[in-house]
């Protein structure tokens, strides 16, 4: 979908650079990642989302840029004229492999798209760091700047109980890779509610309400814009969570249909995910000028009235 050009002409200069030996010309302001995608070169990304300013926190998209001492995050680095980029060197591959292993050894990536494929492509074996430690339930009480010194007998991770404190969505931070997207979507970049923030430091870093209060005691307005951007399934509609628990979630059988929200007059685009004639989840197209992937509680969760059919 292209966006409507409304006023004036935005003339962007083009930039020529070299990627993997191939010369490529893209518009000024594009990132290395988008240039690579233009060329059809796949670069793995985990924390990157198309509605949020890249945080480049995961570091799986690193590429080599000539003249740079360290690798460069392709998702956020803007192209420059004459830039020489390599996406498939020993260094980049090593870096991706290790990042996949580090995340894989500390986070449940079972619902993160493409990870299995990338693991095999980059020969990543998260298990080689050692036996995973048992889940804990005290990550929210960590003392900043202090930790129990590791004895090395098992490798620590973020596995913890699922947080279920409201009817609409669950938070399974065992799956959280700390991409920051939910915080940015809840905060300044979109919703500006700031119900969740990043708390703690280092490995104890976590997504949290103030003092880890339940969502129902927080500022949360249940817009679900955090769920929309979550790349790992850490944030999930209760409907999806329950169906997955019951083994009835069949993504391959679902249809996705774009329509418009039935509530107020803003006219937000909805994507209805339907399984067996039931709406099971609602998202919004990220490239639409009205919503940019965002909805409010009514648009995101207010669909039940068309399927409260049982009498």
């Amino acid at each position: 979908m292209s966006t409507q050009v409304t006023t004036g002409l935005h003339i962007r200069r083009s930039v020529q650079l070299t990627i993997d030996g191939q010369s490529v010309t893209v518009a000024e302001g594009e990132t290395i990642l988008s240039a690579c995608r233009t060329m059809g070169t796949e670069i793995p990304t985990l924390c990157f989302g198309d509605t949020i300013t890249p945080k480049n926190a995961c570091r799986v998209c690193m590429v080599e840029v000539e003249g740079s001492r360290v690798l460069v995050p392709s998702c956020s680095r803007k192209v420059e004229p004459g830039m020489v980029v390599r996406t498939d060197t020993e260094r980049t591959d090593h870096s991706r492999k290790l990042v996949l292993e580090l995340l894989g050894s500390s986070v449940d990536l079972s619902l993160t798209k493409n990870v299995a494929r990338w693991n095999s492509e980059y020969e990543a074996e998260p298990i080689r760091f050692g036996k995973p430690a048992a889940p804990t339930n005290d990550r929210d009480e960590a003392t900043t700047g202090h930790h129990h010194v590791a004895d090395g007998s098992s490798v620590v991770n973020v596995l913890q109980p699922v947080k279920i404190d409201n009817e609409l969505y669950v938070r399974d931070y065992s799956k959280c890779i700390m991409c920051y997207q939910c915080v940015d979507a809840c905060g300044e970049q979109w919703q500006n509610t700031f119900a969740i923030g990043v708390a703690g430091r280092g490995f104890d870093i976590r997504i949290s309400t103030e003092f880890n209060v339940d969502l129902t005691d927080s500022a949360c307005v249940y817009c679900g814009n955090c769920i929309q951007v979550c790349p790992t399934g850490a944030l999930m509609f209760t409907s999806e969570y329950n169906m997955r628990e019951a083994g009835t979630w069949k993504e391959e059988e679902q249809t996705q249909t774009d329509t418009i929200c039935p509530y107020c007059g803003v006219g937000c685009s909805l994507t209805l995910h339907v399984q067996d004639n039931e709406i099971v989840k609602v998202t919004s197209p990220s490239d639409h000028s009205v919503t940019h992937g965002n909805l409010c509680i009514k648009g995101r969760f207010g669909f039940q009235h068309v399927q409260n059919r049982a009498e």
Partner: peptide, 21 residues
């Protein structure tokens, strides 16, 4: 490990794995 801000994976998890090893 204590002083990593935790933002990026290589440092956040890498410093932990380093200590464990």
């Amino acid at each position: 490990r204590d002083e990593s801000c935790g933002q990026c994976v290589p440092c956040r998890v890498g410093t932990v794995r380093q200590e464990e090893i």
